[in-house]
Design a protein around this nucleic acid. Structure first.
Length: 460
RNA sequence: GCGACCAUGGUGAAACGGUUAUCACAGCGGUUUGUGGUACCGCUAUUACGGGUUCGAUUCCCGUUGGUCGCCCCA
């Protein structure tokens, strides 16, 4: 008992040394060069979505797609790159998205282009470009894909992030606004996420231009009390004062003029109807008179989807948002067209699933493993594997492994019920071995009957 | 864009100025070449990168890159 280890020790030690020396001599140089070339690094704020996460991602993507289909929204795929101008016009100068965060560059043909920071503008552009205003209205489109904003990365905030969005063009009815909210909430419900919606109306551009001076006047009278950030807002983007996180500003908000009071009658009526519809279908919502959104094109109804119980981090708890944008198509040179839509942040949804430990429904595990030995068996196996696939018996293999042992280890890890073993002998005899993984019992059967036999065995 | 914290193998951790960087899990290979789940053995890290201090740095300092958190913004 003592002897063998001693015998082994010596050779292994020698082997070790040899190996190390060999490594140093032959590959050390190339290794060094590789390292010096720098191991590749991800761009800041960019992320790989790895196979382990795809389950949750597919859950999110599938929920969105099936909802889109049941509400008969048509899929549209829009380019990632657009003329920079498109976003300047629509999202608005003065917004952070445009001024600080957009990936803009000059392309080889000397055009100013931008990686899309969102897709509503592109959807409106497509609506105009392809004469969709001649189609039966409303035109209902949905999309999903990556968006780009050069913001400082944080949890739930990336420079490339995925959005899915729904846009309805050509309907000014309040029911459309309400339906958007219903749809959004339904997706979250399908995912098992507890999400609340906040809504507000910011009316038309005219009513806002009447309201903003009032708001500014109010806060100006309290200017000395405001924090620096809010003073800046007062000048740059007064509406943002409404969702300031500073306590002083929050305290002042109670006495501040509310945008709802400044809406014209039509806007008020529109908003009232949206709310009535929501009441009708018993959708819980929160009226948030301080909700404003960061893009210029919004009119009337605006809403945001928030995680309902967001103890812990308050940041990045908005999972999506949207609203009406009646002026957008006209702004881009189309015929005046009412429109409404919303977008969802996919990584925030995936993150919420992880946070609440919600796992997507699992698809059935394969129950049959196919082990093959030698080239002849591989050749036969190729066809057999395909036959199994056609009768929809999920079957897996590990073609990268040679040893039967290694293949059985994989089969075992997969928790498979049956392993089929095909080797040289069996190929010659036209047979195959069927092994029950629980009992370990195995029998040699006619390869032509194996599919039937496997199906029978699985039924038990 | 501003501020703070962090960075050890595929993963989670340990060491903390001092000889061959420790442990667990995963991975791969092996324990006689066609049989799994256990056991045993072996292999897998120039301590993110680049500089500096030091006789000596994973450990201290600076820069870069990346991550996280708050602000800002938003999805």
């Amino acid at each position: 008992m003592i002897m063998p280890p001693k015998k082994q020790e010596k050779p292994t030690k020698e082997k070790k040394d040899v190996k190390k020396d060999v490594k140093k001599d032959t590959s050390a140089e190339s290794e060094l060069i590789e390292k010096k070339i720098k191991t590749p690094e991800l761009l800041r704020g960019f992320k790989d979505i790895l196979p382990v996460d795809q389950g949750k991602w597919n859950f999110v993507r599938d929920s969105i797609r099936s909802l889109a289909e049941s509400y008969s929204y048509d899929r549209i795929d829009l380019p990632v790159l657009e003329k920079a101008d498109l976003f300047h016009k629509t999202i608005g100068k003065g917004t952070d998205i445009i001024d600080k965060e957009m990936y803009v560059f000059t392309d080889p043909s000397n055009r100013s282009v931008a990686m899309r920071p969102e897709a509503t503008a592109s959807a409106a552009r497509a609506y105009i470009n392809h004469g969709m205003l001649e189609q039966p209205q409303p035109v209902k489109l949905w999309y999903t894909g990556p968006m780009f904003r050069h913001d400082r990365p944080q949890a739930g905030r990336y420079r490339q992030f995925y959005q899915a969005g729904f846009e309805s063009f050509g309907a000014d009815e309040p029911i459309v606004d309400a339906q958007m909210i219903v749809m959004g909430l339904q997706i979250f419900k399908d995912l098992g996420l507890n999400v609340k919606v906040q809504i507000n109306s910011i009316g038309t551009a005219e009513s806002r231009s009447a309201y903003i001076p009032e708001l500014v006047a109010y806060f100006r009278s309290h200017r000395s009390k405001l924090c620096d950030e809010d003073k800046r807002r007062l000048q740059k983007n007064p509406l943002r004062l409404l969702d300031s996180k500073d306590e002083v500003a929050r305290g002042l908000l109670d006495g501040a003029p509310q945008i709802l009071d400044w809406l014209d009658d039509k806007s008020k009526e529109h908003f009232m109807k949206v709310i009535e519809f929501l009441d009708e279908v018993e959708i819980p919502y929160e009226l948030n008179p301080f909700l404003v959104r960061g893009l210029d094109y919004y009119t009337h109804t605006v809403f945001e989807f928030l995680l309902a119980d967001d103890e812990g981090t308050k940041a990045q708890n908005a999972l999506g948002g949207g609203g009406r944008y009646d002026g957008l198509v006209e702004l881009l040179g189309g015929r005046p067209t009412a429109a409404c839509g919303f977008a969802l942040g996919l990584e925030r949804m995936v993150r919420a699933l992880a946070k609440y430990d919600i796992n997507p429904p699992q698809f059935p595990e394969p129950k049959v493993f196919f082990a093959q030995l030698g080239d002849a068996a591989r050749r036969v196996g190729l066809g057999l594997f395909e036959e199994f696939r056609q009768v929809k018996v999920p079957i897996v293999e590990a073609a990268g492994k040679n040893a039967l042992k290694a293949q059985l280890e994989v089969a075992n890890k997969l928790g498979v019920k049956i392993t089929l073993i095909l080797g040289q002998k069996e190929v010659l005899d036209g047979t195959i071995i069927m092994r029950d993984m629980e009992s370990g019992a195995q029998e040699t059967v006619d390869v032509k009957k194996v599919i039937q036999l496997v199906q029978k065995h699985l039924e038990k």
